[in-house]
Design a protein around this nucleic acid. Sequence first.
DNA 1: CATGAATGAGCTTTCATTCAT
DNA 2: GATGAATGAAAGCTCATTCAT
Lengths: 211, 211, 211, 211
Amino acid sequence: MPRKPNTAERRSQIVAALLAEIAVQGYARASVQAIARRAGLAPGLVHYHFRDKEEILLELIASLARVARAREAALAAAATTPQERLQAWLDARLASGPGAAPDAVAAWVMIGAEAVRQPEVGRAYRAVLNEELAALTGCLQACLAARAKATAQAPRLAAGLLAFMEGAFQLSSAARELVPEGFAAGMAMQFALRCIDAEPPAGRPAREDAV
Amino acid sequence: MPRKPNTAERRSQIVAALLAEIAVQGYARASVQAIARRAGLAPGLVHYHFRDKEEILLELIASLARVARAREAALAAAATTPQERLQAWLDARLASGPGAAPDAVAAWVMIGAEAVRQPEVGRAYRAVLNEELAALTGCLQACLAARAKATAQAPRLAAGLLAFMEGAFQLSSAARELVPEGFAAGMAMQFALRCIDAEPPAGRPAREDAV
Amino acid sequence: MPRKPNTAERRSQIVAALLAEIAVQGYARASVQAIARRAGLAPGLVHYHFRDKEEILLELIASLARVARAREAALAAAATTPQERLQAWLDARLASGPGAAPDAVAAWVMIGAEAVRQPEVGRAYRAVLNEELAALTGCLQACLAARAKATAQAPRLAAGLLAFMEGAFQLSSAARELVPEGFAAGMAMQFALRCIDAEPPAGRPAREDAV
Amino acid sequence: MPRKPNTAERRSQIVAALLAEIAVQGYARASVQAIARRAGLAPGLVHYHFRDKEEILLELIASLARVARAREAALAAAATTPQERLQAWLDARLASGPGAAPDAVAAWVMIGAEAVRQPEVGRAYRAVLNEELAALTGCLQACLAARAKATAQAPRLAAGLLAFMEGAFQLSSAARELVPEGFAAGMAMQFALRCIDAEPPAGRPAREDAV
DNA sequence: CATGAATGAGCTTTCATTCAT
DNA sequence: GATGAATGAAAGCTCATTCAT
């Protein structure tokens, strides 16, 4: 008389609990007991559904990436121009307002720190960032192309925006009062447009740009 | 015939050991024992010179801020124009090459994560960032003024560059291979110059800028 | 098929072990390790069942109070007159012979010392003494009333007997050979009866008694 | 060039500091460092003047006994009758008002607890109590003799009063609000007088007293 | 005599993980 | 699937005592 499996549900409960714990405690101090308590489960159950604590973290990383992509997809639905698509991409990650998830942002900051230490976590973290980078590069290339500009600098600019994004997460988690409320999305767009506009037309080398 | 105090020396030994440990382990896992071992001291001695682990961290934060300012002072010595001064400020934090301290960068990332959790650490972290912000704003205002541009956007731009800086630290610690080697200082300068050049002349409102 | 909870049993095991340790070591030196060892448990288990050491102590205080009341109930079962009830009350606490628990007495002395230091312990300690005082006052009032004497002095006399009781515990723990073997119960009764007999009949003021 | 020895002064400084610490912390938690700090001395100096912590405690015990005897001597100076001398003895230990030293009382309670544990402390503690008992017995015998009563019960009564005294110390340290303010000296005298008055004249056996 | 750094054992507490039920 | 007790290895911190100066 097999009961119907609920592993998927349990796993996401646990991942959500880790998200909440990690956002305020950091990973090292997010104890399995606390995760279980927050998820409303018995402690032992956590290790039934996950091999160890790291595995929960890895799933959380994947989950956060999925959420960001989903928010972007929603925002991008109405976009028609490359610039609108870029805007959607940035807003999905950086805009305040509905859909913003401060806990997720704080958790991501903690994950970034943990990525330095745990090789497996580092791999997962970089895999996510790599996809972000690729997508962002694509957006930027489209914008540049739409303006008949050279696209060679797109990867570099994407890396710059990614760094800005990570730093904005950091500041919004740990130093919210130091930066203007909700400035991140606008600032990112500003950086992007300024650099795009300054790019020379396609076909010509971009020598003087090597700042 | 009292033994002569050596607390200052011991304290900096211990702070240096915490820096090294935190860079690879994070704060929570940088055990006092490991710190002592790395500093070549008996475990108990750490708590003779510091009330608790947090106090070491607070001193480390202050110490890192001092180091950054010192590096900047050295670089800024030869600067004559506002733009060179800005360059010195950014290079002191972001340039690779001599004076770059990957351990310090990684430690700072860990501190940023810890700042979310420990209120006292958060305060110290924000105090440092606040000073950075003020100094950077000053550099930007000088650059804008030198070009006869409105300076109103300087604080916002400074916040943007600070976020980029923090994010660049993060990426260089946890995802070095995703970003071009040593691109951070150049990218920051590019963001800054593009935005500065795009500012309208002083005296005219900057309406269309509210990106 | 959950394992059935045994917390109640474990907790009383641990409390009993603390009683034994505290009686010879005092609270500060009754280490959790030693408690666990004496209870035959793994060290970590103590903190699974109790938040911290203080919580064990608080439960021990409650437990000792329960034991005293139980012994008294047994002795008072056969009592018919108020004086016999008083005797039962005093014997339950002070008599040597069967039911006497030197360890509990020594533990209570240590608890009294600890009550000076730990506010929460002080509260629990005073709560128990307060109940003792109320019960004893009741016994004394009944005795006085049975002899048609004024009962106004009952609270004061009860406080005096309570002090004697605490002191007798102290001496029997730390200076047994200085006091006659098993004299405490008799001495307390003697104090009580002498004072009761000396009280003036009810209805008349007891002025000359204000010693 | 020998400096003039100040050992005696230093020792009493240290003893006084232990008194203050022990009164609020208990002996086990009165750290040598804290004692030194309170005495305004360097930590190492404590072990120059005392072999170890226990030795300080032993001297404190002796010191407290001396203080009690000194206060008694002052009060007894004006006493002419045995009863006045008894009063002086009890007041010296139990009266509130000038000369009362709550810290000393609390310290004595802590010492009583420690006496259970440390054999050497126990010996010193009992030695003091033994002298107290002898002196008190003497007072009581004198009172009884002055009234032409049998003195055989004096030791027993003295033990009872001593127990009351120790218990009054305990209550005044840990449960001050449970007992009437400043009732101890009066209560002790009341116990004493009631029992003295109830004693039969000398020369006749005291059978009915075997309560 | 005096200083204060140094030592290392021992303390309470936390926690990932295991496992009997 | 689920429970919650159990384990034992750390962790941070305290402290009596020693000792070079």
